[in-house]
Simulated scan of single mutants.
Amino acid sequence: MSGFRTAQANFCRGELGPQLYGRFDVDAWGTALRRARNVIVLKYGGLSKRPGTQLVAEVLDASQPVRLVPFQFSLDQTYALEMGQGYLSPCAMGGRLLEEELAITAISNEEQALVAMDWHGLAVGDLLYVTGCEGEIGALLNGRAWPVRAVVDANHLRIAADTRDLAPFTACAGGSTRTAPPVAAPPPSVPPVTAAPTPPVIYYGGSGRFGRGELN
């Protein structure tokens, strides 16, 4: 006697646990998979191949342990949260979420590269994330966050990147050019410390005894 197989078009329940492999009496059994690898279960019940991966960026601080935590705010808003020592950097849509992309007009060939950006507004210790630069300098700097080592003036700063042996800077695409210094955001308001509330007065019952009889 030969067996037969029925077509299954709905996989909305995803992958079953081992405890449900033989539970054909459960509703989820007919709309699930025993094993699903490299696929994405669509909300309408179908399946789609998992897309490939690509290098978005290096972690901000590779000297410390880092965790990547997936976070889904809604059906069309998903993030990868890079959690390191004392920082959190969200990534989405194939890149990092940045404060503002500024145009880089020049990068020098020095032990600590001199970067030209109009009204950069950065300070020593901040991180400069570089992307869009061409040539050998771009191959070194792109996709990485570089610590600011020195602030020369409002339009120039030095980063911890040795570019002495690279070809000269040609161009860097993307970004806007500031025409005035950035407006610093006001510090968040901190509510004043309130005094602790007065603890309630607790009354304890007496220790007297009632004699025999009934209370009306």
Rank of each mutant, 00 (worst) to 15 (best):
Met1Phe: 15
Thr6Gly: 13
Gly17Thr: 08
Pro18Glu: 04
Pro18Thr: 08
Gln19Thr: 01
Arg23His: 03
Arg23Glu: 01
Arg23Leu: 01
Asp27Pro: 10
Asp27Phe: 13
Ala28Arg: 15
Ala28Glu: 12
Arg35Thr: 03
Ala36Gln: 06
Ile40Asn: 06
Val41Trp: 05
Tyr44Ser: 02
Gly45Val: 04
Lys49Val: 08
Pro51Asp: 07
Gly52Leu: 06
Thr53Cys: 00
Thr53Gln: 11
Thr53Pro: 00
Val56Thr: 11
Ala57Lys: 04
Leu60Gly: 06
Asp61Thr: 06
Ala62Asp: 11
Ala62Tyr: 13
Ser63Asn: 13
Pro65Cys: 03
Pro70Met: 00
Phe73Glu: 14
Ser74Thr: 08
Asp76Gln: 12
Gln77Met: 09
Leu81His: 06
Glu82Arg: 06
Met83Val: 06
Met83Arg: 02
Tyr87Cys: 02
Leu88Pro: 04
Leu88Ala: 11
Ser89His: 08
Arg96Glu: 00
Ile104Glu: 03
Ile104Cys: 02
Ala106Gln: 14
Ser108Pro: 10
Ser108Thr: 13
Asn109Ile: 04
Glu110Ala: 15
Ala113Pro: 01
Gly135Met: 05
Ile137Asp: 05
Ala139Asn: 15
Ala139Gly: 15
Ala139His: 10
Gly143Tyr: 15
Arg144Asn: 15
Pro147Leu: 03
Val152Asp: 14
Asn155Pro: 14
Asn155Gln: 14
Arg164Cys: 09
Leu166Asn: 07
Ala167Gly: 11
Gly174Phe: 00
Gly174Glu: 06
Gly175Asn: 05
Ser176Thr: 15
Thr177Gly: 01
Ala180Lys: 15
Val183Lys: 10
Ala185Met: 12
Pro187Cys: 00
Ser189Thr: 12
Pro191Asp: 07
Pro192Val: 10
Thr194Asp: 07
Pro200Gln: 04
Val201Thr: 14
Ile202Trp: 05
Tyr203Ile: 12
Gly208Asn: 13
Gly213Asp: 03
